[in-house]
C-alpha cells in the first residue's frame, strides 16, 4: 500500500556535530532491499520514520554506488528527529522511498565537478560526491568547497580528512568568521567569498550546490561572477512534506511539486519558480 514504509534496522549511529547525527540503516526484508537497489539514484530522498512519532523527510546521504545500506544525516529539531536521534543500534525505524528525481550524473561524465555545500547540506552533496568518486575515472577535476558556521558544525569529519588526503580531490574547507578554533588551518570566511578566492574554472564544469537559502542566494552570485551559467549549477530544494508522492499538496513552489519533480533542480529551474514561494 502506498503509505506503508519499509522497516529498517539501525546498524550504527554516529554523532556528526552538535545536534546532528548520522544513522546507518539496513533493510529488514530482502524484497524491500531489492526494490531500493533497483530504484535508488543519487539525489533522491526518503521519509524516515519511527512509529509513534511520525515521518520526517531528508535525503539519502549514501551514494548510489553503495546500496547495501542507507545513511541519513539530520539535525535534531522536531518531534520525529528528536526521537530518531535517540535510537540505538538494533532498533527498528522505517523508511519510505526512494522518492523524487536525481542528479543526472551520467551527464556529468567527462566534466569537471565542483561541489559546494554549507553546514547540514553536505549530506545530499556527499551522496553525489561519493557516487562520482566511486567511479572516479569517469570525471575530470573534482573540487569540494564546504563551509559551516563553526568547526564543530562541520559534518563527516572523517570523510573530510579522507578527501583532504586524496590527490585527485581538491578540498576547500571554511568556517564562518568567529567559528574557527585556535588550531584551525583552513579558510575563515563565508562560502561565496571563499569560493571566489578558490576560483574554480567554469570551463566544462558542473556545479552542485546545496545549502541554506541565504547561502545559495549569494553563492549563485559568486558562481555567476566566476562564469558559471545557471544551467550548469544543480541544487536541491526542500520543503515540508508528508506524503512524498505528490498527493498531500504542501511542498509545491509555484506549480512545481518538490517531491515529484524535485528535489534536484538546476539553478535555472529554481530561478524560474516564483521566488516568493520558496
Amino acid at each position: 500500500m502506498i503509505y506503508s514504509p519499509f522497516p529498517m534496522r539501525v546498524v550504527s549511529k554516529r554523532a556528526e556535530a552538535p545536534g546532528v547525527n548520522t544513522l546507518k540503516l539496513e533493510f529488514v526484508k530482502e524484497e524491500d532491499h531489492e526494490f531500493f537497489k533497483q530504484n535508488y539514484k543519487t539525489g533522491m530522498f526518503g521519509l524516515y520514520g519511527i512509529f509513534g512519532e511520525g515521518e520526517s523527510t531528508f535525503c539519502v546521504a549514501s551514494p548510489e554506488t553503495r546500496k547495501d545500506y542507507i545513511e541519513c544525516t539530520f539535525r535534531q529539531s522536531g518531534r520525529v528527529t528528536s526521537t530518531l536521534a535517540n535510537v540505538d543500534a538494533g532498533d527498528i525505524v522505517t523508511f519510505r522511498g526512494p522518492y523524487g528525481n536525481r542528479f543526472p550524473i551520467e551527464q556529468f561524465e567527462g566534466k569537471n565537478l565542483l561541489f559546494i555545500a554549507g553546514g547540514i547540506a553536505l549530506p545530499p552533496t556527499r551522496s553525489v560526491i561519493w557516487s562520482c568518486l566511486d567511479q572516479r575515472e569517469k570525471y575530470k577535476d573534482v573540487t569540494i568547497v564546504y563551509g559551516a558556521r563553526t568547526v564543530a558544525d562541520l559534518v563527516y569529519k572523517d570523510e573530510l580528512d579522507e578527501w583532504k588526503k586524496r590527490d585527485d580531490v581538491r578540498l576547500v574547507l571554511t568556517v564562518d568568521p568567529g567559528g574557527e578554533t585556535p588550531d584551525w588551518q583552513d579558510h575563515v570566511g563565508f562560502v561565496p567569498t571563499v569560493l571566489e578566492q578558490a576560483a574554480p574554472s567554469p570551463e566544462n564544469t558542473i556545479a552542485v550546490l546545496c545549502g541554506p537559502p541565504i547561502m545559495i542566494k549569494f553563492t549563485l552570485v559568486a558562481l555567476q561572477k566566476l562564469g558559471f551559467t545557471a544551467e550548469n549549477v544543480y541544487t536541491t530544494l526542500e520543503n515540508r512534506m508528508k506524503c512524498g508522492v505528490g498527493k498531500c499538496g504542501r511542498c509545491n513552489v509555484g506549480s512545481v511539486y518538490i517531491c515529484k519533480e524535485g528535489p534536484v533542480f538546476t539553478a535555472a529551474e529554481v530561478q524560474a519558480m516564483p521566488q516568493a514561494d520558496l
Binding site: Y3, F51, G52, E53, G54, E55, N239, R240, K242, C243, K247, C248, G249, R250, C251
Partner: peptide, 27 residues
C-alpha cells in the same frame, strides 16, 4: 492531507487526516 501518528507509548495508528493550505502550519 497530513499524516499523523496517534497513540501512546505502546501502540497507535498512523492516520491520514485532512489538512488545509489555509493553515499556517501547513507549510
Amino acid at each position: 492531507f497530513d499524516i499523523q501518528d496517534e497513540g501512546d507509548t505502546y501502540a497507535g495508528i498512523r492516520r491520514k487526516n485532512w489538512d488545509s493550505c489555509s493553515f499556517s502550519l501547513f507549510t
